[in-house]
Every structure is written in structure tokens, then in C-alpha cells.
């Protein structure tokens, strides 16, 4: 059973997002980190880079696959989590604490799911 906290919103492509002090915080879900396996490298965008809902903004490398990570929102990168660049495994151990980016000036979002609807997406893919 995957942990999907109630207070977060989710994408079908397995990112989580939450609004915090006017910024949208984005990370990978428990399902995603489990499917990826041990993460060895995270490529993050730079502060100031634009991101577009539904388009890749980052990629993560796990034991061997490189997988794209998609933005749940359209906006501008306000902060990146440098700590996970130094310790990519923290995305596996604490996926909801190890956010990837915070997005400002959000003008649009992907179709966002609540925890219950997202659980169904996971169940269908498992």
C-alpha cells in the first residue's frame, strides 16, 4: 500500500503538489519512488526557469533508467532543493519531505487529483 497524504494533490504521472505560502511545492510520490527503485541522480532546473504543466522539468536516474519528471503546474521555478542533489536517496526514504522544486507565478495546472482518485491511478498501474 502506498502512502498518499490527504493534504496533497497528485498528477497521473506520479508527482505530488501542494500550495504553500503562495508557492507550489512539487515532488515525486511514494508510488513513483517505489517504481523507480534506488535513485542515484536528480537533475533539477535552475531558479528562474519556466515550467509548463504536463511537460518535463527534471529527470531522475535510478539504478539504471532515466525517467522524466513532469510539472503539475505552469509557472517559474522559485526554489530548487539542492539537498536532494547531494543525497538523491532521500527521495526514496522520504518522498514527501524531499521536494524537488517550488514554483511561483502559477498560471495553470495539470488535471490534479485528490489522494483518493490518485490511489485508483496507482491501483490500475500496479
Amino acid at each position: 500500500m502506498f502512502k498518499n497524504p490527504e493534504e496533497l494533490k497528485y498528477t497521473k504521472t506520479h508527482e505530488w503538489v501542494k500550495e504553500e505560502d503562495g508557492l507550489y511545492v512539487v515532488g515525486l510520490t511514494d508510488f513513483a519512488q517505489d517504481a523507480l527503485g534506488d535513485i542515484v541522480f536528480v537533475n533539477l532546473p535552475s531558479v528562474g526557469d519556466p515550467v509548463t504543466a504536463g511537460e518535463a522539468f527534471s529527470d531522475v536516474e535510478s539504478v539504471k533508467a532515466v525517467s522524466d519528471v513532469f510539472s503539475p503546474v505552469t509557472g517559474v521555478v522559485a526554489e530548487v532543493n539542492e539537498a536532494i542533489v547531494d543525497d538523491p536517496a532521500s527521495v526514496n526514504s522520504d518522498c514527501y519531505g524531499s521536494w524537488l522544486i517550488k514554483v511561483a507565478d502559477v498560471t495553470g495546472t495539470e488535471e490534479l487529483l485528490d489522494a483518493k482518485a490518485y490511489e485508483e491511478v496507482c491501483a490500475n498501474e500496479a
Binding site: T13, A56, K64, A65, V66, S67, F70
Partner: peptide
């Protein structure tokens, strides 16, 4: 030796 790429 194998490697993988997964896009959307």
C-alpha cells in the same frame, strides 16, 4: 549491459 529511458 543494458540501460533504459522512460519518457512520458
Amino acid at each position: 549491459g543494458h540501460a533504459y529511458y522512460r519518457g512520458k
